[in-house]
C-alpha cells in the first residue's frame, strides 16, 4: 500500500510544476461542483432515503427504518405486478429491438439503393422529444381517428375499432411496439459500427472456401460482432427497465396498471402519495435487480465466447 503510494508520488513528480495544481482545480471545479452537488450527492442521499420513512412536505421528521421498506416491498402485490410488467417490457423491447436492428444493420451494411434514406430515417427517433414520440403513436393507435384501425379494417383483419391503449390485453404489446420503434437508432447504429469493423478479408476467404451466406454469418460475422452485441443489449435492457417518459405519455401506466412500469409506480408513490422513502427503496431494488441480471448475462456471454 505504502509502496504503491510511493511509486505514485514518484511518478507524479515530473509532471508537477509550481502553481500548477490550483490552476487546474480552478478550471475544473466550476464543472465538477454542480455535478457533485446535484447528481453525485443526490444519488447517495437517494440510496440512504431507501432505508428511511421519509415523506413529502417540509419539516417532516425522518427516521432510519433499516430494511422496513424492503420488507413492505416484498409483500406489496402492486409492486410485484409492476415488476413483472417491467420485466416483460424490458426483455420484450430489448429482444425485439435487437432482432429488428440487427436485420436493418445487415441491410444498411450492403450496397443497396435507397439505403441513405433508411439510414436517415433510422436516426430520426433519436432527435425527437420522447413526448412527441408518445403523442404521435397515440394518434396512430387512436380508436376512431387512428391509421392502425383504419388499415386493419381495410384489410378485413378486424371488424370493429380496437382501443389499443385501453385494452387490458393489448396495451402492453402496443406500448412495447412503440418502445422498439423509439430505440431503433442507438441499437442499429451501434450494430452497424460493429459490422463495419468485421474484417472484409475474412468474409471473402470464407466465400472462396464455398461458405453459404448463413455459414459466413455464423462463422465469421457473429463471433466478431459478439462484444458489440453484448454491450448494446445490456445497455438497452438497463435503459428499458428504467423507462418512464414514453410510457407515461402513452398510457400513464393504465389501463388498470397494465403498463405501469416500475418507474411509473415509483413516480406515483413519490409524487402522488408522497412516500419518498418507499419510492427510493424501490429504486434501490431495481438497481440490485439490474446488477444481478447483468452479472449473469455478462458471465454467460463471456463463457460462450470462449
Amino acid at each position: 500500500m505504502t509502496a504503491a503510494t510511493a511509486t505514485l508520488a514518484a511518478n507524479a513528480k515530473p509532471v508537477r510544476r509550481k502553481g500548477f495544481e490550483p490552476a487546474v482545480l480552478g478550471l475544473v471545479a466550476p464543472a465538477l461542483l454542480p455535478v457533485l452537488v446535484l447528481s453525485v450527492a443526490p444519488l447517495l442521499y437517494g440510496i440512504y432515503l431507501g432505508f428511511t420513512d421519509a415523506r413529502a412536505g417540509r419539516n417532516m421528521p425522518v427516521h432510519v427504518t433499516g430494511f422496513a421498506n424492503y420488507v413492505e416491498l416484498f409483500g406489496d402485490a402492486d409492486f410485484w405486478g409492476s415488476f413483472r410488467i417491467g420485466l416483460v417490457w424490458a426483455v420484450g423491447v430489448t429482444v425485439l429491438q435487437f432482432a429488428a436492428a440487427l436485420g436493418l444493420a445487415l441491410l444498411l451494411n450492403q450496397k443497396l439503393r435507397g439505403r441513405w434514406l433508411a439510414r436517415t430515417l433510422t436516426l430520426v427517433p433519436w432527435a425527437m422529444p420522447p413526448v412527441v414520440v408518445g403523442l404521435m403513436w397515440r394518434l396512430v393507435y387512436h380508436p376512431q381517428a387512428g391509421i392502425l384501425n383504419s388499415t386493419l379494417k381495410d384489410l378485413h383483419l378486424i371488424s370493429s375499432n380496437v382501443d389499443w391503449l385501453n385494452s387490458f390485453t393489448l396495451a402492453l404489446p402496443a406500448v412495447i411496439a412503440v418502445g422498439v420503434w423509439a430505440g431503433m437508432p442507438q441499437t442499429t447504429i451501434t450494430l452497424l459500427a460493429g459490422l463495419q469493423a468485421v474484417p472484409g478479408e475474412l468474409t471473402e476467404a470464407a466465400t472462396v472456401d464455398g461458405a453459404s451466406t448463413w455459414q459466413r454469418f455464423r462463422a465469421v460475422t457473429w463471433p466478431a460482432l459478439r462484444p458489440v452485441v453484448t454491450a448494446i443489449t445490456a445497455l438497452d435492457f438497463i435503459w428499458n427497465i428504467n423507462q418512464f417518459g414514453l410510457v407515461y405519455v402513452l398510457t400513464q401506466g393504465g389501463p388498470g396498471g397494465q403498463t405501469r412500469l416500475p418507474m411509473l409506480f415509483a413516480y406515483e408513490e413519490a409524487f402522488r402519495y408522497g412516500f419518498f422513502g418507499y419510492a427510493a427503496s424501490l429504486g434501490v431494488a431495481i438497481v440490485l435487480v439490474v446488477l444481478v441480471v447483468l452479472a449473469f448475462y455478462l458471465r454467460r456471454m463471456l463463457k460462450e465466447a470462449v
Binding site: 455535478v35 452537488v37 446535484l38 447528481s39 453525485v40 450527492a41 443526490p42 444519488l43 442521499y45 437517494g46 440510496i47 432515503l49 431507501g50 421519509a54 445497455l235 438497463i238 435503459w239 427497465i241 428504467n242 418512464f244 416500475p262 418507474m263 415509483a266 413516480y267 413519490a270 419518498f276 419510492a279 427510493a280 424501490l282 429504486g283 434501490v284 431495481i286 438497481v287 439490474v290
Partner: peptide
C-alpha cells in the same frame, strides 16, 4: 466513469433527493 454510472441508475433515486435539495 460517472457518465457510465449515471446510465445505470433509475431516475427516481436522483430525482427525490434533488427535489428535496
Amino acid at each position: 466513469a460517472w457518465v457510465l454510472v449515471s446510465q445505470v441508475f433509475p431516475f427516481i433515486l436522483v430525482i427525490i433527493p434533488l427535489f428535496m435539495i
